[in-house]
Amino acid sequence: MIPQLLILSLLIFIMAKQMPGDPFTGLITPESDANRIEELREEAGFYDPWYVQYANWIIGVAQGDFGKSYTYKVPVADLIGERAMNTLWLSLLSVVLLYLIAIPLGVLAGRYQDTLVDKSIVLYSFVSYAIPTFVLGLIFLFLFGYQLGWFPTAGTVDIKYEESTKAYIWSKIYHMLLPAITYAVLGTTGVIQYLRSEIIDSKSMDYVRTARSKGIPIRKVYSKHIFRNSLLPIAAFFGFTITGLLGGSIFIESIFGYPGMGQLFMQSISSRDYSVITALVLLFGFLTLLGSLLSDIIMSIVDPRIRID
């Protein structure tokens, strides 16, 4: 994991070096002295060899110092920290909704295999797999946000509420609901299909026949025996769900005007705020790695067979 992060950081560093401008371009005003800027550049090590600069940068990053944002003139870490909480809450709500939708549907489809219920659920999961995020997001925003007016169309919270009151928290959740639903609807495919095929496979297993012959009612066999075993791959999926959320956040947050990390990334790109861009790419890379690591860990907890000594 560490070597992968190092290679990624090197890649990002090289890309950042290729981009036009430097941290001092933003400081230039009509009054500023060109020589003073040059001095500042010299002091900050702008003319050092690239490996010295890389070493300085990566040491800073390891200590949580990502430099300063050119446009906002505040430390990048503060800027991201603010937005990261928004993205975190949105992701959390999305994951909860995703499993609330996917698990019942997957179980139903598996249990009533080849019936109308199963067929419509399979069709649903197919459609949600094929729709691009931004198309569904826009259609939802158009329908539920503007035409029906059920949900707010941008922002995270109504300004009229005071902080940390009940109404404030509810307003926050209310603003997150539509983006979260969009993400949840799009993300269900994998979970539904895994759960469905696991349950169908489990039906013909010996332990199910044993349970049935002991006289355990069908309902209990499904809820206690099959369901537990079928959840294994879903648990493994969890880490990758997080990875998907991060990629999706760029689209979802742009569409719904939700000020999270994805939107910050898009804004930094259009304002060419390179220190923020590099920090965000590195952070997303780190979180993606963390997601796949989490998948492995969860898997080894729930399924002892996969444990590596």
Partner: peptide, 19 residues
């Protein structure tokens, strides 16, 4: 391949396009 799978490719594509 492992490396490519774990990098945030969408973001890097966007950065490259602007660069």
């Amino acid at each position: 391949i492992d490396f490519f799978i774990t990098i945030p490719s969408l973001m890097i594509i966007i950065v490259l396009v602007t660069m």
